[in-house]
Design a binder for these strands. Structure first.
Length: 302
DNA sequence: GATTCGTGGAA
DNA sequence: TTTCCAAGAAT
């Protein structure tokens, strides 16, 4: 072993927490779902909306939702189609359906309060590994490894020394995240939010700003000379011409409509009849569109 | 484990 | 203009 006593310390757990949390105290964005009045329901709604959708687009829709449905029971009492309509253009509208379903489950099984138990959260529709940990940590201050794309990138760089984490979360990443979790519950929750914010604002996927990073001196990736990503090519997602685009156009028509629309109104959104029919069928299968007996279509009423 | 599922802003 | 990618989940 060579003498590395003059080199910066490697990124062990304790040396990361303090500077990252201190940075967070100074630079955290004032987001509505971080305010105390948001409550667990506000945190949960924001987490659904933030799944693959940027903060800037979520913010206005979030405000509308919380004003209209301040508690889970308020949303649960609505037709699911109203959730889909209010989802607007956030994308991935199945999230709206799942959030509505989660609100119903909370109303029926949890007395109308967002559960604090991780396993109970995980059992709700639309809540997976990340969101369950996020709600438990952000809303209830619990100690969980919150592994979103930001945290995974921060850990990949600071601790592992690679530019990007693997495509899907691995067991190795989970183990690392747990090992780096502060022992104290409140500190762990703070660390989760802080490390995520660092990835969102400074340690970004493109154009990372190491000059503003509180742990740049201990970052394994930077110390290694920031080697380029060596893993498999991350194939870009084409969109034009896909079923997803057709589904999006079909649903846009139904969101704007105040009454059920005829087939002919849906036919105008796409020229190719086979793909058009396949997309509509898939929307019906997903429960996002409700076909009526008279050949009309609408957002789901039940 | 690989695919599918929207949308729009920025580089 | 094209490409990247943004607090993932479900299958």
């Amino acid at each position: 072993m060579t003498d590395t006593s003059t080199d910066p310390a490697p990124a062990d757990a304790a040396s990361l927490h303090t500077p990252v949390i201190a940075w967070f105290d100074e630079h955290a964005r004032d987001l509505p779902w971080r305010r105390p009045e948001a409550g667990a329901w506000g945190v949960m709604v924001s987490e659904f909306m933030l799944q693959q959708t940027p903060v800037s687009r979520v913010r206005p829709v979030y405000e509308q939702w919380l004003a209209r449905w301040p508690r889970p029971a308020d949303l649960a009492a609505e037709a699911p189609g109203e959730a889909v309509r209010a989802w607007g253009r956030l994308g991935y509208p199945r999230r709206a359906l799942r959030l509505h379903g989660a609100a119903q489950a909370i109303t029926e099984r949890h007395g109308g309060d967002v559960p604090s138990d991780h396993a109970q959260l995980l059992s709700l529709p639309g809540i997976g590994e990340y969101t369950a940990a996020a709600v438990a940590s952000f809303a209830y201050g619990q100690r969980h490894a919150v592994l979103d794309t930001n945290v995974r990138r921060v850990l990949a760089r600071a601790a592992t020394g690679i530019q990007f984490p693997p495509t899907a979360t691995t067991a190795v990443e989970r183990k690392l995240a747990r090992a780096l979790l502060p022992d104290d519950e409140a500190t762990a929750a703070r660390w989760a939010a802080a490390s995520m914010e660092l990835g969102a604002l400074v340690c970004t996927a493109k154009n990372e700003d190491c000059a503003r990073c509180p742990i740049a001196a201990r970052c394994a990736w930077r110390l290694a000379g920031k080697p380029a990503y060596a893993g498999p090519a991350r194939r870009g997602q084409t969109y034009a011409g896909t079923d997803r685009q057709v589904r999006g156009r079909l649903l846009a028509v139904l969101r704007e409509a105040v009454a059920p629309v005829p087939q002919s109104a849906l036919d105008t959104v796409w020229h190719e009849p086979v793909q058009r029919a396949r997309a509509l069928d898939s929307l019906v299968a997903d429960g996002l569109v409700e076909p009526l007996e008279n050949g009309l279509y609408r957002l789901p009423h039940s």
